[in-house]
Design a protein around this nucleic acid. Structure first.
Lengths: 148, 148
DNA sequence: AATACTTGATATTTATAAATGTCAACTTTT
DNA sequence: AAAAGTTGACATTTATAAATATCAAGTATT
């Protein structure tokens, strides 16, 4: 069994990842351009993928090809992740946060300013990492349900 | 200003609705088959649409044609509506409810058994009606956030 | 220093979702 | 009772998202 840390280690090149996932390098870069994934970047701008990245990509593939959800659909789904509850940002921050107030793309695709997320590396953020498994969004929504 | 009740009155035939929305009758029936809408049904099986239905359909159209979210994407989004929190069903009911546990289609498309929803008319249910406006799902997710 | 791989940008192909068309039986309207 | 509208089922068209191809410049590997 792999530790969480091991799963996050960026070890596969883009072509290795492409082979493992049976897709093309182009497709991987497209998913990144769309904001579905954030591979590790070397200084040379070359990408590296972790096992967690591959797991996430399998969910994305499944959503697109089996569940027939469009890429924009997936982006919108990601925009529903209750990030504010995960990172516990302040009411004031929420008021000014596009990710809190809009619903078209994932929080990690915004250029956040004047809030906690500005200093965060989204690839390492729990909001991003928690959603590597399929069905995690609904799980999160269930878990934030307030007690009455 | 129309009252909520007025907006819910089923008054438009399918062809009238189609003209008002600039779409074909076929498309309206397709959205229904997919579980995106529940028009009122006369005993003769003829459909009638309310102003609220038209509003909902405009959101659906916008999602498909402007936001480029696929129909299956919209169904998945609807599956994230925190219905359990809106109707306040019991923990026991949640345990056995497909809508609570799965994430592929809206709660109103399940043939619910042995729970509160069995006796409900989904078209009249708050869960369905609350989601007539675009962006309502995120609004609901924000609103159920538990206090820490 | 030669070979293989990666980058981003633009263009093209292909797979298929969304929308329409057709039809015979039934319902509503005049 | 004739005309217009609606139903469901099946077939076809079209619009476009997803995937792939090409290329010249840069980086990594042996």
């Amino acid at each position: 069994m792999l530790s969480t840390k091991d799963k996050q280690q960026p070890i596969f090149s883009i072509s290795q990842a492409a082979v493992l996932l049976h897709i093309s390098v182009h497709t991987l870069r497209m998913y990144e351009r769309e904001g579905l994934i954030i591979p590790f970047q070397k200084k040379s701008k070359h990408r590296l993928y972790s096992k967690a990245d591959l797991e996430r990509l399998e969910c994305i593939r499944n959503a697109i090809n089996k569940m027939k959800i469009s890429i924009n659909g997936i982006k919108t789904m990601y925009s529903l992740i209750p990030c504010w509850d995960i990172i516990e940002c302040s009411i004031e921050e929420r008021k000014n946060c596009k990710s809190y107030n809009e619903h078209s793309k994932p929080c990690w695709t915004y250029a956040h300013q004047n809030n906690t997320c500005q200093k965060r590396n989204c690839r390492e953020c729990e909001v991003y990492q928690k959603n590597a498994q399929c069905g995690q969004i609904k799980e999160l929504i269930r878990s934030i349900t307030r007690v009455k």
